[in-house]
Design a protein around this nucleic acid. Structure first.
Lengths: 154, 154
DNA sequence: AGTGAAATTTATCTAAC
DNA sequence: GTTAGATAAATTTCACT
């Protein structure tokens, strides 16, 4: 899908705040409110906007721990990789999961209520999975930034 | 802030989709639409809901590369750490930034248009910063999961 | 306190052009 | 792409438990 300057301006606005009214969006895009709505509808239909979500404070709902986990598989075979991807997708404790090159095969961001909860997760997710060679956990001390946004037309 | 079962149900709903109408939310929370709106307003004011955003497809706007970067500082001194946190916050290329324990001091998720763009970022962000001992980049081959949500009451 | 129903305000959608 | 009118949703008010 081709994106013009107005589309990019709208995307940049809603990736920071998707509760702006059409009138507010009209100003940033220099367009009418109706045009903005039509464009955003299309951007959602085309998958340029993948989702619209509220970012909930993990601490406020009792997820006091966040972990960065680097995972190495026994073999980087397509079926093994795919099986692990499926496991990531269906496991709610895993917030983010990336398949990467380099020292590790996967990087996960996992939330847990406490250390016991995390340990329970690792038993369930890692120790019962024979495809996994090993994993390394880094405990998050401070979430410095979690903007889920990136430069649009910069 | 104290959260009851209805609050948690609302949070779980909107962390997956914040464009649900109050009538739809009323069903999931077993409450009236008015009550849902009031609760969500308070959850936003209290910071339980930190933000409401659209998740934009990085590829669709030309951010074809995502990198996981593990950063080590020369010394883990408070002022150095704080200065680096400030740099993270003001740098738009950095989507996520965590201060962590373990092998690295920081884990960043960075997007870039292409390799040249990423290299330019590393020069600007890392090589000019004398507090940084080193960094290790892992290229993302597949973003398996990016839900930004976690289990609520589970 | 927190709820829910009705009235008001506000925003969104559906045409028309 | 816009403007204007119809539709729908979010706020506000208020009576209630």
């Amino acid at each position: 899908m081709e994106l013009d300057r107005a589309d990019l301006a709208l995307l940049d606005a809603v990736q920071h705040n998707n509760r702006l009214t059409s009138d507010e969006l009209a100003k940033v895009a220099n367009l009418s409110a109706t045009a903005c709505q039509r464009r955003l509808k299309k951007l959602r239909e085309e998958g340029v906007i993948e989702a619209d979500v509220s970012i909930v404070s993990p601490k406020a709902v009792g997820r006091h721990l966040t972990m960065i986990v680097l995972v190495s598989l026994e073999r980087e075979r397509a079926d093994i990789v795919d099986r692990f991807k499926a496991a990531i997708r269906k496991t709610k404790d895993v917030m983010l999961g990336y398949y990467v090159t380099g020292d590790a095969d996967f990087m996960l961001i996992v939330t847990a209520k406490d250390m016991e909860d995390y340990e329970e997760f690792t038993r369930r997710f890692f120790y019962e999975n024979h495809d996994i060679k090993g994993f390394k956990t880094m405990v998050v001390m401070d979430r410095v930034k979690a903007s889920f946004s990136f430069p649009i037309q910069g």
